[in-house]
């Protein structure tokens, strides 16, 4: 059983937004809606400035609050690979998952009304491909793979690197890891 995860190596991100565009194209995300985003944060005062580029998407949490709060079982965590997915036919559009997600990863599909989100491109994974955002990432900032496979790109990337998750204190146990420091952990 694979345990899919993603690593965002922020050291390699150039904020080209190719991931945002490829995601929209691959998943036919409606206009003005997004499954992934890129944050450009500038801190400090000139000339001492610091910029952080960070891609954000659904964290496919191991303890997903959107799944716990969904009253119809439309949002679920797939047992075989741990992806957090949506049974669209069961979604009632109550927006409890939107309120529950600390990462603001969901939106309401304006045409169909369901609470849509990133699926790690599970339709591509099925075909043995990487998610569209990973495949298109020119800086190899987005890395995808199976956490249970010691040779997978995500395990290799995480080896000996400072990896963090977003909002760790929320207790959601995210599966998207961020590397932003060059030094090795002590």
């Amino acid at each position: 059983m694979p345990k899919y995860a993603m690593v965002i190596d922020q050291r390699r991100c150039v904020a080209c937004m190719a991931c945002v565009v490829s995601c929209k194209k691959e998943n036919e995300v409606p206009p003005e809606h997004f499954r992934t985003r890129v944050l450009e944060m500038v801190e400090g005062e000139f000339p001492k400035l610091r910029m952080e580029l960070r891609s954000e998407l659904c964290n496919h949490c191991d303890n997903p609050p959107c799944v716990a709060n969904c009253p119809t079982g439309a949002s679920y965590k797939r047992e075989e690979d741990g992806l957090v997915l949506l049974k669209k036919y069961r979604c009632v559009g109550c927006k409890a998952c939107l309120a529950a997600c600390p990462y603001d990863a969901r939106y309401i599909n304006p045409d169909k009304g369901f609470a849509d989100k990133c699926t790690f491109c599970e339709h591509r994974i099925k075909e043995g491909k990487e998610p569209a955002c990973v495949a298109t990432c020119i800086g190899k900032s987005r890395i995808f793979g199976d956490m249970d496979d010691a040779k997978s790109p995500v395990r290799v990337a995480l080896q000996g690197a400072h990896a963090e998750v977003l909002l760790k204190h929320a207790g959601t146990q995210p599966r998207v890891y961020y590397i932003k420091k060059f030094s090795k952990p002590e």
């Binding site: 709060n69 009253p71 119809t72 069961r90 559009g93 109550c94 927006k95």
Partner: peptide, 26 residues
Amino acid sequence: WDLDRKLNVYWLYLTFKPFSPMSWGS
């Protein structure tokens, strides 16, 4: 009125989710 997929409302009563307050409420 607030539900975005009103026709699916019956799913609230085909499911019971113990950790979902909305399920308890329904």
